[in-house]
Amino acid sequence: MTLPISISAAQGAQVKRPSRYLRNLNSKIASIPMVLTAVVVFLGGTIWTILYSFTNSRLLPRLSFVGIDQYERLWSTARWMVSIQNLATYGILSLIFSLTIGFLLAALMDQKIRFENTFRTIFLYPFALSFIVTGLVWQWILNPEFGVQAVVRSMGWTSFAFDPLYDSDIVIYGILIAALWQGTGLVMCLMLAGLRGIDEDIWKASRVDGIPMWRTYIFIVIPMMRPVFVTTLVIIASGIVRIYDLVVAQTSGGPGIASDVPAKYVYDYMFFAQNLGQGFAASTMMLLTVAIIVVPWAYLEFGGRKRG
């Protein structure tokens, strides 16, 4: 008795409204790759790695939990400490220099100059090149036997010493020079877009007020560009944490382990040292670093939007 009734009820419902899961079906089909990527790869993969960082997996991932052993070992490994120090030094200097140089270049470009397109093309072309190419060129330029050091010495300053790639104390600065060469063009472009976004009337008003140009930049324009600075900062910073290719190409982490970085540590432990647990723990630390940078920013962005 109940069966026919339930069928007719279902049919009735279908006539009124086709199942809500079938509405917009094409759109849902088109979004399958996005949903899979977001849920399986990004969310699933991240959770998987974090989970396995608490195991003692070596050659193959195994679910035998050892608590925070891997993290304790990580933070007592000299190589990891060097990586972290390098990342901190490189990161802080890279942020300061790329923001400063990028902004200065953008401000110069904004002076209604001639050949603006030529200059922009020159400043930005390294950004089109890969880190591998960048690393190899600067490896050659900084080569102590033939590069800058040799050239300066041949000009008479025989005691001139600039050999960052073979001096473990300053090797990270050698990498910094190459990274700045590659990336400041991008910062310049972002800053220039920010400067061009400033209402021209603001500049006119400050001229009528008789405010010198440098003061207008510092007290009016830069504060107005705060969102551009923050966004640029987040982009540079999340790039810094990932730095890998450049180091591999320029120094292979050497001399010794002097220019090692977390991303290289992770790769080596996962694919060479057959110590997956260490690799997972180290990569989780990388994730944490990025989260510390991105979460407050995202919070501010979205919080700000809600208020606005």
């Binding site: 209402d199 009337d201 006119k204 008003a205 400050s206 009528v208 008789g210 504060p223 107005m224």
Partner: peptide
Amino acid sequence: EEPKDRGIGMVFQSYALYPQM
């Protein structure tokens, strides 16, 4: 002369107020 030395004041369409002040 520079704008500031001309003895003029100007009001703009977009107000051009300094937003951080």
